[in-house]
């Protein structure tokens, strides 16, 4: 997608939008930061005030989606636009898995990132969105490396662990990060002839598997999502190898959202400085109550393939 700038002078040439580098480039800028779920413009401002690097605009946080049941869909464009108008940081929004028309609507609204998310009810039980056909970048969830690579092959410019959204239980996110990072470490050390069987086992393109072997990391940033509820949770997933943290229900279901938001931001930056993590955790008040991920009726992390 190219635009000539039409002005000639100054020596600059054609401008190209929507490239892989431009899409991944924004994810790269969000590293070491916290992306917060918000359901109103006021919450978006609280998130920005606390140092969020981006907000996820949605009608209900995952904990409420779980509680309410029913079909969860893309949010009302009026709500997304109100949030985009309220803050200067990037705004993300969720489309259902496979629902490329919801994604086209979000792109038309001008959101900065689309989350093709298992937190919403999937719209296609076979196909994810062809994300290459969009100018706006996508983030997708993954439980394991194969899933991450399939999403990247479809054009995802950022991968996040799925975790078990809305539970406040970080165990599944830890499990997913360890799955992804553990397999990357194994592939980095394997014999080149083994890459083909890795590709078969992961159900992923061998070119991507080879790229993993060469780089020792995903070709796009890997963030953590699903169940982060405290500063120490954020430190844990950053230590394990996440590059940034999504916090869904954990902030606005806590007893003091502005303080929790700020504390999680600080802990994400200074994740290996435990005096700092202790300082921001001190007297913080009640984290979201949550529920153990193993006991939930609907396992959101099992959606997608």
């Amino acid at each position: 997608m190219t635009d000539s700038d039409g002005h000639g002078g100054g020596g600059q040439s054609e401008r190209v939008t929507g490239t892989g580098m431009v899409k991944r480039g924004l994810a790269t800028q969000l590293r070491g930061g916290v992306i917060m779920d918000v359901v109103t413009a006021d919450q978006a401002k609280i998130a920005e005030d606390a140092g969020a690097v981006a907000v996820m605009a949605l009608e209900r946080v995952p904990a409420d989606i779980r509680r309410d049941g029913g079909v969860a869909r893309m949010s009302d464009p009026a709500l997304i636009e109100a949030i985009m108008g309220a803050v200067s940081i990037p705004v993300m929004a969720k489309a259902r898995i496979g629902h490329f028309s919801e994604a086209k609507v979000l792109e038309a609204l001008g959101v900065d990132y689309i989350d093709e998310s298992e937190v919403l009810t999937p719209a296609d039980d076979e196909h994810h969105i062809d994300k290459w056909s969009f100018r706006v970048p996508f983030v997708c969830g993954a439980n394991n490396l194969g899933e991450a690579l399939r999403r990247i092959s479809e054009g995802a410019a950022m991968i996040r662990s799925k975790g078990e959204a809305g539970t406040g239980d970080v165990k599944e996110a830890v499990h997913h990060l360890r799955n992804i990072l553990g397999d990357i470490r194994k592939i980095s050390n394997c014999d080149p002839t083994e890459l083909y069987s890795w590709a078969k086992e992961l159900r992923a393109p061998v070119e991507l598997v080879r790229e993993i072997a060469e780089r020792g990391e995903l070709p796009v940033p890997l963030f953590c999502a699903g169940g982060v509820a405290t500063p120490a949770d954020a430190a844990l997933v950053m230590e394990i190898g996440a590059q940034s943290v999504f916090v869904g229900s954990g902030i606005f279901k806590s007893s003091d959202p502005p303080r929790f938001a700020r504390a999680i931001v600080e802990a994400t930056t200074h994740y290996s400085d435990y005096e700092m993590v202790a300082k921001v955790s001190r007297g913080l008040g009640g984290a979201m109550r949550g529920e153990e991920s193993a006991s939930v009726a609907t396992r959101l992390s099992e959606r997608g393939w």
């Binding site: 800028q29 900065d112 706006v136």
Partner: peptide, 25 residues
């Protein structure tokens, strides 16, 4: 916004050949 982010080649004084520049928001 992000959909307007772009890459381009840019002439920078003193650097000779154009530099590839990525503009993100």
């Amino acid at each position: 916004r992000q959909r307007d982010s772009f890459e381009t080649d840019l002439r920078v004084a003193g650097l000779g050949a154009p530099l590839h520049a990525v503009f993100i928001r």
